[in-house]
Write a protein that binds this DNA or RNA. Structure first.
Lengths: 147, 147
DNA sequence: TATTGTTATACTCTATAACTATA
DNA sequence: TATAGTTATAGAGTATAACAATA
């Protein structure tokens, strides 16, 4: 991670990806604030869609959060009517999670604003490179999330 | 950040970059351990080269660390003979930092191992895409570090 | 006895503020 | 008085372990 050494032959990929990620997150922050969402709340809304998810543990794993960490997040989102949390009738230990239509609307609005912001950065790349970059990034991201 | 929603049109760039960065850092960890380096220590070694840097504050800013945070890191590296820290004769408040040859050797060894590891991931991309990806990443990284 | 969700607690990491030494 | 470096402390964020409910 961190800045590559001056005159280095090539910086480590991690040393470019991690700071870039930090910058992107910092740019997201005011947008999330404007929508009344924390980063973790946005991560939850971004992962859920109208299909109910069977357990909170599965959600936590999917967004790479500790299961205990998302509980206050879910509490907040539920109390604002952005998602519902109800016991699974077939296994009352588990909680079925689903977004409300209002939750979906908020997520879509936040995501649109965030992607608009990202476009400012991506727009600095030539169109052809941008395509390849996004496709490659998606590939590497998916590989990195395997397991 | 975090995992993109299932069936999302396109995931946010941040939602791919941040988890990818996390995975890369996790992959680096055992390599750093094997070289007796923490992440911050590696960041310091990676940034410094034989040219002395005029202040610790400049180093901290360059690697995006708080100036107070790197002090124990510098203490450790100095006591191991990997860098030297001497008062600037022209302004004895400042400390001139420079890598020792041993520090440079350790940094080079760690960097080679890390880049070998990264190559495993990058190798999954077609060669042409890989070139464009690395070039674009570097561009975006540099833009993101401006200011 | 194992699993889901929850709560309480401890730990790590990071930043803030106060101090020293130089200028 | 301002700046570089340092130290001590407080705060945020995170994980660990113990608990209640259900299977």
């Amino acid at each position: 991670m961190a800045a590559p050494r001056r005159n280095a032959p090539r910086p480590d990929v991690a040393a470019m990806v991690v700071p870039l990620g930090r910058t992107l997150m910092a740019a997201e922050q005011p947008i999330l604030d404007a929508h009344g969402l924390t980063m973790w709340a946005y991560a939850v809304l971004s992962y859920l869609d109208e299909t109910p998810l069977r357990t909170q543990a599965a959600l936590a794993e999917a967004i790479q959060a500790d299961k205990t960490r998302i509980i206050p997040v879910l509490d907040g989102l539920e109390s604002r009517g952005l998602l519902t949390r109800r016991p699974d009738p077939n296994d009352r230990r588990a909680r079925l999670l689903s977004l409300t239509s209002e939750g979906r609307r908020l997520r879509d609005a936040a995501q649109a604003a965030i992607q608009d912001g990202e476009q400012l950065l991506l727009g600095r790349l030539p169109a052809a490179d941008r395509e390849v970059f996004l496709r490659s990034l998606r590939t590497l991201y998916e590989i990195s999330q395997e397991r």
